[in-house]
Design a protein around this nucleic acid. Structure first.
Lengths: 147, 147
DNA sequence: TGGAGATCCATAGGTTACCTATGTAAAGTC
DNA sequence: GACTTTACATAGGTAACCTATGGATCTCCA
């Protein structure tokens, strides 16, 4: 039913539409990039900078900058890693957890409300979309650190 | 089965993962944003700047910049709109069509190959993901021009 | 028909989110 | 105790956005 050409087209459309969604969201958020880090910390617990960068598929300096920004907002706290004097552990603060909840609600309003309004897709389809994205990213092998 | 909380979480994850995908793609592309415009022109045919901005969910000055960049690369051509002296019509050139084909192939390699490798999702799931994103965006009502 | 207001696009000016390259300090390795 | 690797920070630069605003042209109607 779906030809290789269809898949190529769909793959490209996935990227294009993802970019549009990101831009739409960016307008309604003060720190769109920081949210990804907050979300990671919620998932992983206290984590070092480099591990966060790997998980977010960004470079380490980028993550350093994100963490600094989040720290200025009081959403994360850094502490020395007792097991490794080179490292830092970044952890969510209560304010960070509150911010994450706030943003999730905002995203839900943006995404879920529109899906519901359209009626063409249900929660299962949404879950499928997320799973597809996650699948593509989990298999990402492009190196971000010094090659 | 899926609670409202799940939907909220999924909505947020959709945004987060979309942003990560966009970043991964950005690394492998010279002009990641321009591709969206090329894709639109392929879909719509010759179109004015403002209409492109609306379709891409970006501001008009952003689209002006994108078109200028694409024109410098020789991927689009501008011509005066015979029906409206204020307007311009932007159209794909042959080089632009070739570039679009090249990028689509690259995106397919990035996305489709990994999905195939994982085996957890098929073309239908990919189509669902694209449809969900399109649905959310089509229902976007946030205004981008002077409010 | 002659403005008034809307629309199309460009310019100015600024911000965020990225990147690569590189330096510094601590950890492992032998 | 030197050698390599790892964790993070800094420096410097770019692409992709935004809002605000200005100059033309179109539209509409009193």
């Amino acid at each position: 039913m779906t030809t290789p050409d269809d898949v190529e087209r769909l793959s490209s459309e996935l990227v294009v539409h993802a970019a549009r969604l990101v831009r739409v969201v960016r307008r309604s958020l003060a720190y769109p990039a920081g949210v990804r880090t907050l979300s990671l910390l919620d998932e992983l617990g206290p984590t070092g900078i480099s591990a966060l960068a790997t998980a977010d598929h960004c470079s380490q300096p980028t993550m350093t900058g994100q963490v600094r920004q989040l720290e200025e907002q009081g959403w994360v706290a850094r502490s020395p890693n007792p097991a490794d004097a080179r490292g830092t552990l970044v952890a969510l603060t209560d304010a960070g957890r509150a911010e994450l909840a706030r943003v999730r609600t905002a995203n839900a309003r943006l995404v879920a409300d529109r899906l519901r309004a359209s009626g063409a897709h249900d929660a299962r389809d949404l879950a499928t979309a997320v799973a597809v994205l996650r699948d593509v990213l989990d298999r990402d092998t492009t190196r971000r650190d010094h090659p």
